[in-house]
Every structure is written in C-alpha cells, then in structure tokens.
Write a protein that binds this DNA or RNA. Structure first.
Lengths: 231, 231
DNA sequence: GCAAAAGTGTTTGGATTACACCCATGC
DNA sequence: GCATGGGTGTAATCCAAACACTTTTGC
C-alpha cells in the first residue's frame, strides 16, 4: 500500500462559513456580504474565515458571527463540510458550514463595515455567489428546513413577541405549504407559549394577540414527558 | 482587527473516519479495528486515514472503505466534522466522519490484514475507543437512526432477501421499540417489495416468505407521486 | 398434538382535514 | 357599513394502536 509521510499532508487550509438566517416579510433570508477582495472580488458570498490552528470549530463559528453581527450567545448548528479540491482557486481549502438563526432587527448593518456591502436576501432569490457558496447555502437551507420540523428553533428568527400568523407564515414559507389557519392552531397546541396581554399595533384590522415561546416550560416538558416537538 | 498570514494556517491535517454499520443477530453493529500502531496502539477505533491533498472527500471515503473491506460501489453518507484542537495527541487533525451500510456476510474479515484485529461490535456494546471515536460513532449512529426514518437505507444492511420479521427487528432495535407485528406490516404496506416464491430454510416453525426491496419501483414511485418513505 | 412463529382481520380512539362561522379594528 | 384579517367550532375522514384469531412448520 502506498504510504505518504504525515508532514506531506500539511498542505491544505481549513475554513468555516457561516450561513446566517433571519425571517422578514414572510420569507427566510440569508445574510450576504459583498467581497471587498480577491478572489471573487465584488461577488456576494456568505461570511467565512480561516479557522485558527488552536481554535475549536464552535468557537470559530461564534467569532465569525460576532465579527459580522456583533451578536454573541447565538446558538450555532453544524451543517455540512465541503471539500472539493477545486472549490477554492488559491489552493485546497476544506470548509465547514455552520448556521445561525438571528432576529433581523437585533442586528445593525453598520456593525459590519469590513465588507464592501451587506444585505439580507430571501433564500428563494439568491444571486450567483462566490466559490461554491450557492451549494453551501442551499444544502444548509435544506438542513434548516429539516430542523424546523423537529426542533423549536423558529423562535430564534421570530421577534420575541410574535403573532400566531407570523409563526404560520414562517412554516408556510419553509415547507412551501398554505396550511388552514384553524388547523395550524390545532397543530401547535402542544407547544408551550406565553400569551401576553398585548396586541399588535397599527394594523388596519383586528389586532392579533402576541405570544412568546415558553422555553422553560418546553425544557420541562421534554424532560418529564415523552413529548417531541413536531411540525 | 488581527490578521494572520494565509500561510500560517497550513499547520493542520485533515482526516476522514469511516463508520461502517451492519446488521446481525437483531442488532446494528459497527466495524472496529484494533490499532497496530501509536497513538492508541492496541485500542479499538473506527478505520480512518488522512485525506490526500488533491482528493475529494467522497473519493477518500470510498478509498478507505475499499482498503478495509474490498467492497466498492457502496453508498457513503456524510456525517459530522470533529475539530477539537486536542482530539489528536500529535497535532491538529480535523476529521470528517462518513458512514456506510454494508451486508456483513458480503465482507470477508481476511481482507483487512493491515490492522491487528478487526471485529463487528453491537452499537449498544461499544468498548472505550481511541481518540474521540466514541463521540464519532455515537453521533453518527444518531444520524443513521434519523436517516432510517426517511430513507430506505435499511435494505443496504439486510440480506438481499429478507423476511418481514428481520426488517421489523432492525427497526425495533434502532428505534428501541417493540412494534406490534400486524401494525408493522400495515405500516410498510406502501414500500414496494418483490415477493419471492421462496421461504426460510431450517427453521423449526412455519417458514417466513422472503422479500427484496424493489429499488426500481421505489425510484419510480418517488418520481411520479408525492410518496415519501416514512417509518 | 404441541410449541413457535407466520400472517391477517376487526375495533376503537385520536389526530388531521375541510369548511363554516363569528369577532374586532380602521376607515 | 364594509373590508380585512383574527379567532374558533364541527363533522367527516384517515391513521395508528390494541388485540384476537388462523395458518404452517418441526418435533
């Protein structure tokens, strides 16, 4: 069997790309930056960076997310790894995708001055991206849709207080469905919510009640019963 | 912002570990090798190797699988990436796990002479493994269980001709259930099978009919209807 | 005949679906 | 009042679980 020296393998680099999702105007969006440098200068891409030699992957993901959004303590989810030898024009760069869900209003665009431009783009209206980033975003979005079914992570994208209709819009967009309103509300019955004595403002119809996800009750529920979040 | 030179990042290595699953005696098993060299000499581990600098990840996975089992054309599934800086005692080695499902009798133990020992171990009876391989196997097994729900991959582990009871045993083991026989058979009704005019041999009770998974009919079904495999 | 597992039918209760209707607000 | 979306109840249907029963083989 052909054997290669251990040191001869130290010829590639390892990066981490962050796919940051948010929800706005009924659609799931991705945060894109316009690259200010070569390669792919002026192309849109997801934010990414090389991983430091002594840095763990979740730490690198938190760092990259913070550098761009100034947000910390955001839950990050590992997506897939993309290792095609030709994916980076300057050499072999294997990249690991992570994704985060944030509330778009919590993030201020000004914070990210190091990129030439920055923009939220609906996942169904992506332009052509740098590197293999279209593949990365699309694969990661598939993963997100899957997680939305079995984990209550949609609330990381919705405002802290949301209407049941906003919640339904999120799922209708992700699953490409148009669920019946009454049936949707029956479906979410098992999810623990905090109902606020507060209503929508400035709408020209009957204002909807505002809800929050009851995280403590949820944790308790999965611990003490065999309840499983399911959409 | 602190900026590090691109070349300073070329200080880690990238490996690929193959978690190979099979089904035997009512349990899902993993193929383990006993390491013949340091580090972790004489410890059990899953087979893995460094990725060649110009090698794509799926190719590396196929190569490692072939070197060990001499089996080719096996479908490989990407699992997670493990990048803890301390996971390898000799340096930073980021590893990507892949998994494969094989029919245990198709694989001959003799083929794998390069390891000190080789052995199928039930996933619920794993010993302590080298590196972070317990984490790798357990995480990958979770992923496998998830895929068993939505993709007809169980048939890659079962013999080409199997009894419905063997199929149920596989799912009962994976999902830690004891489904009712009659209900299980109703549940699998939508799955396309080829029913053979052949029965179990050498059993001291009524012999069961043998079935195969009808892959062509399945492909056809998912293309032409909105059928979705679901267990 | 008996043990053991193969293989099938019936009943029941809970969840999903379709659909209809009333309510609160702005203009 | 009317347009708009918020919010809820009911009946029909489908599906999953529980359970009982018959069949075929070896000994």
């Amino acid at each position: 069997m052909y054997k290669i020296e251990f040191n001869d393998f130290f010829t590639y680099s390892f990066s981490l790309d962050c796919v940051i999702f948010g929800f706005r105007e009924g659609k799931i969006h991705v945060l894109l930056i316009k690259r200010a440098m070569e390669p792919y200068k002026n192309n849109w891409a997801v934010p990414g960076d090389l991983v430091y030699p002594d840095e763990d992957l979740p730490d690198a993901a938190q760092r990259i997310l913070f550098e761009l959004t100034k947000l910390s303590d955001i839950e990050l989810h590992q997506s897939q790894t993309f290792g095609n030898p030709k994916r980076h024009p300057q050499g072999r760069v294997i990249t690991n995708a992570y994704f985060a869900l944030i509330r778009i209003p919590d993030f201020s665009v000004e914070a990210a001055s190091w990129a030439e431009a920055i923009q939220w783009t609906a996942v169904d209206e992506l332009p052509e991206l740098a590197f293999d980033h279209n593949l990365i975003v699309n694969s990661t979005y598939e993963l997100l849709k899957n997680k939305l079914r079995y984990e209550p992570i949609c609330f990381d994208m919705l405002p802290e207080r949301f209407t049941l209709n906003e919640l339904q819009q999120l799922y209708d967009f992700a699953f490409e469905t148009e669920m019946d309103k009454a049936n949707f509300r029956k479906k979410i019955k098992p999810i623990p919510f905090i109902a606020h004595n507060e209503k929508q403002q400035n709408v020209k119809h009957r204002p909807a009640k505002l809800f929050s996800f009851d995280s403590a009750a949820y944790q308790n529920k999965i611990r003490s019963t065999d309840y499983q979040f399911k959409m």
